[in-house]
């Protein structure tokens, strides 16, 4: 395999005393869609926060051949990394268009308008509501805003942190269709999800995290519906039954 677009080597993430991620290594090749699943507290968000330099990490993270382990968060967009944060975290007091323009900050000024136009072509919803304050939108709509804000800068790698969180099922399928479409344009995608089936259904490969470590990995099709995955996911239901 050629050099992976993203490589994490022995990455640990800690928030003060609490260890979120322990010694995790994984690779993401160009053009792949990777699903990271696991129960709450398994370390999924910690992984993304670590990659995006929003949390303290040890270990090495390499992106596109560069070591970004010590880089500043604001540099990463320019390098082609983008994040759709947990719980969307759009800028509530800004309008949809302003949110998108902030996302396009890394682009030179001339290109921003063009990128904006492209986004409006792709996401009709946003074109309709470009002047609406993002904070007044529903969760599902905000998720689209957050997604568009991340991809407007045409990143090489897009990280999505639990995009289905708090969304009604119909929005979930909309969203995952969108992600698939983006993947088809050649974007590399890493989706962290609690809703394992939705994530695995669109992914090439998957990793199951448990207690901050990689418990299982493999092709998404193999993991889907797998009983061992369910067991890991629900924190060893079987062990409890044995008591």
């Amino acid at each position: 395999m050629s050099t992976p677009l993203l490589r994490c080597s022995n990455v640990s993430v800690a928030y003060g005393e609490v260890v979120g991620l322990r010694d995790v290594s994984l690779d993401v090749a160009q053009g792949e869609v990777i699903a990271i699943i696991g129960a709450n507290g398994a370390g999924k968000s910690s992984l993304l926060n670590g990659i995006m330099r929003l949390a303290k990490t040890t270990g090495t993270v390499e992106f596109d051949g560069h070591d970004i382990s010590r880089a500043r968060a604001s540099r990463l967009t320019r390098m082609g990394l983008a994040l759709v944060p947990e719980r969307r975290q759009i800028f509530p007091s800004l309008t949809v268009e302003e949110n998108l323009l902030v996302g396009a900050n890394a682009l030179p000024r001339r290109e921003r308008r063009a990128a904006l136009a492209e986004i409006y072509d792709t996401f009709a919803l946003l074109a309709e509501r470009r002047e609406q304050a993002a904070g007044t939108m529903s969760g599902g709509q905000q998720q689209i805003v957050a997604l568009a804000r991340a991809v407007i800068s045409r990143p090489k790698l897009c990280l999505l942190d639990e995009p289905s969180l708090g969304l009604a099922p119909i929005w979930v399928s909309e969203l995952f269709n969108e992600i698939t479409r983006l993947a088809r344009t050649g974007m590399t995608i890493v989706v962290v999800e609690q809703l394992a089936s939705a994530a695995l259904a669109i992914a090439d490969r998957g990793y199951v995290l448990e207690h901050g470590r990689v418990a299982l990995e493999g092709r998404a099709a193999d993991l889907l519906g797998n009983a061992a995955v369910a067991g890991r996911y629900l924190g060893s239901v079987d062990q409890a039954a044995a008591r």
Binding site: M52, A73, R75, F91, L94
Partner: peptide
């Protein structure tokens, strides 16, 4: 202006603004 937008974004959510590439 873009400056105004990113300044307001900073007030809303500084870490995410940084993650969007804003030199906070």
């Amino acid at each position: 202006t873009q400056w105004g937008r990113v300044a307001r974004a900073l007030a809303d959510n500084q870490p995410i603004a940084a993650a969007c590439g804003v030199p906070t």
